[in-house]
Nucleic acid binder design. Structure first.
Lengths: 103, 103
DNA sequence: CTGTTTTTTGCCAATATTTGACAAGTCAAT
DNA sequence: ATTGACTTGTCAAATATTGGCAAAAAACAG
């Protein structure tokens, strides 16, 4: 469960019966890189998420949420105070939403 | 409210009636750097948090939580799906806790 | 088992990001 | 106008991340 995004990408790719060899060039990378992304050893660039969603016929928002979640998890995974910190950050976001600074 | 950690550090420093000039050398940096840290323009290194907590007679865990929260916030601050992503990451952490992988 | 294709791994140069150090700047008090 | 505290800008140095290749490993077909 180290990279939910990577696991999802792989699942989607297999559903579509595509090989790394077929998908990687569409993202302008080689198979090695895409393999690492699927295993969570590399990060896909934020701006490539819409592209891969299109290639794999998946929902952009779902993939983006998974991707962001992985980024957050990376910050706190080894921290015993991680949960508290997340609650605090969440509160900050919630406050922002209540004030319509962001939709 | 861009850096809760920085704001806290500054508040603590002022409570102790200390100048940047006095604190910075104890962290092996110059006043310019510490000033930026307090304003959220630079990050204090994770491993320096216990040191600064000691210097400012503050609670390490509190400062660490603030620091982590800032890191998390930086990931999601411009993301409309940030809140969802945080919930997802939180769930992952909660799951981990329930299984005692971490205290 | 052998040959073929797919995926994984390791390495390191290239690129990108962050930091450290210094100089010059503002601001407030005197 | 001078002093002291803090801030800002710049840029090279240090770190971290990524891209690309080659070779190993794993999966699969015959």
């Amino acid at each position: 469960m180290e990279s939910q995004f990577g696991e999802k990408i792989r699942a989607l790719r297999e559903e579509q019966h595509l090989y790394l060899r077929q998908v990687a060039p569409l993202l302008e990378m080689d198979t090695a890189q895409l393999s690492k992304i699927e295993k969570g050893l590399r990060q896909l660039k934020r701006e490539q998420i819409p592209t891969i969603a299109h290639i794999l016929k998946a929902n952009v928002n779902e993939l983006l949420t998974l991707w962001l979640s992985d980024q957050i998890y990376a910050v706190v995974k080894d921290e015993k105070l991680g949960y508290q910190a997340m609650q605090m950050a969440e509160e900050k976001i919630r406050f922002r939403k209540e004030n319509d600074i962001i939709g």
